[in-house]
Design a protein around this nucleic acid. Structure first.
Lengths: 200, 200
DNA sequence: TCCTATATATTGACGCTGTCTATATATAGG
DNA sequence: CCTATATATAGACAGCGTCAATATATAGGA
């Protein structure tokens, strides 16, 4: 009857230390730079110590990604909560928070979508992702205006737009510029356009 | 005065063979599976032979990516050429061709946007990418309807939407389904919605 | 308090990788 | 024919993930 949550034996809390080290490496050098041996070094343990907490590299990255999805959820929650007004304002806040998170934390955002690096069957990971998507759909449902498309089409459109935009920005494919007609920041213009098209 | 284009000495045309092998590995196992040693094995040469044609792994992947961008350009060109009608039809064809390519060639599409694996300063690569984007902007310019947003905002919106949608689909985040209101395939609905919002 | 089962950590090994150096060989062009 | 050059090989090195064997610290029952 050992309790996983209690401080462990030798290191103190190696699991937490490894996650912290992985996050540090991630922010500095990107997803591929997270190696078992490097995080072990940063935590001050041998290269084989992490296996007691993460069975392989994929498990470590899955845990990091799960944590980041929860962080993203919290950030979005905070932004949408303080937004007053019509449902469209809530949805707008949601999408803008998603975009802002990606631009502020490039490598964290990159890991979120490197599905080849994580265990996609992991329940905690799936739940963390689903939570966010479900909240978007729920927010869309608050809008009572007559829609041309169903709620999932709207969610997919907004999510795709935001994800595509952030991805391209992080890849350096387009620079942040204002629209020459509306004078808005480009990302604001495209989100607004899609919200209007969907009649949110 | 040697001519790079002529058949080389020992292998015949190792450069071409390496690129073909890399493409084969890519389709089967994804970008990360392309290793110098594996493509050398497939080409029947020693592990150090490729260095004469690609100075390192990044150079090899850059060449593959450049080739794929050219392939994508050709596919889009073919689709838009045979599309008759209003400018909006041309733009629609362009975006649909982009989406179709991604869904048909998942690993090729993935490599295109793995900027960490290629040399982003490579001129041929940049040119191949720019060619495609420039064609989208040029196609948008054919439309004479009064726009709410400038051509780059429109291009960014459409490109982001398509890229985000394909990325999420390839990650298995949403399944292909019809919109329950319009009965259209989801990707058709979202592209149509954005085209309408942009007044193309 | 001691004893033992278990959780945790270390050491060393294996095969894989990219890349470098030294060496070998085939071809081109004078 | 001869030499410079392009191309290919063989071997080495460090870093990686992972596994097996071993060591050690802790928990909980006797």
């Amino acid at each position: 009857m050992t309790n996983r949550k209690r401080a462990p034996y030798h290191h103190g809390n190696l699991r937490k230390a490894l996650l912290a080290a992985a996050l540090k490496v991630l922010d500095k050098a990107g997803p591929d730079a997270i190696t078992i041996r490097e995080v072990a070094r940063l935590a001050g343990v041998s290269h084989a110590a992490p296996v007691n907490h993460f069975k392989d590299r994929t498990a470590l990255l899955t845990a990091v990604a799960t944590q980041l999805f929860q962080e993203l959820d919290a950030v979005i929650e905070k932004q949408t909560e303080k937004t007053q007004g019509k449902p469209v304002e809530k949805v707008s806040s949601f999408i803008n928070a998603l975009i802002a998170y990606g631009l502020e934390h490039p490598n964290r955002y990159r890991l979120l979508w490197r599905r080849d690096l994580v265990n996609n069957q992991d329940e905690a990971l799936q739940q963390a992702m689903d939570t966010i998507y479900d909240k978007l759909v729920a927010t869309l449902e608050r809008s009572t205006r007559k829609k041309r498309y169903d709620k999932h089409t709207s969610a997919v459109a907004l999510w795709s737009l935001a994800h595509g935009y952030v991805s391209m920005r992080l890849d350096g494919n387009f620079v942040p510029m204002a629209d020459t007609i509306t004078k808005q920041p480009r990302e604001q213009a495209i989100v607004e356009a899609v919200l209007a098209a969907l009649n949110i």
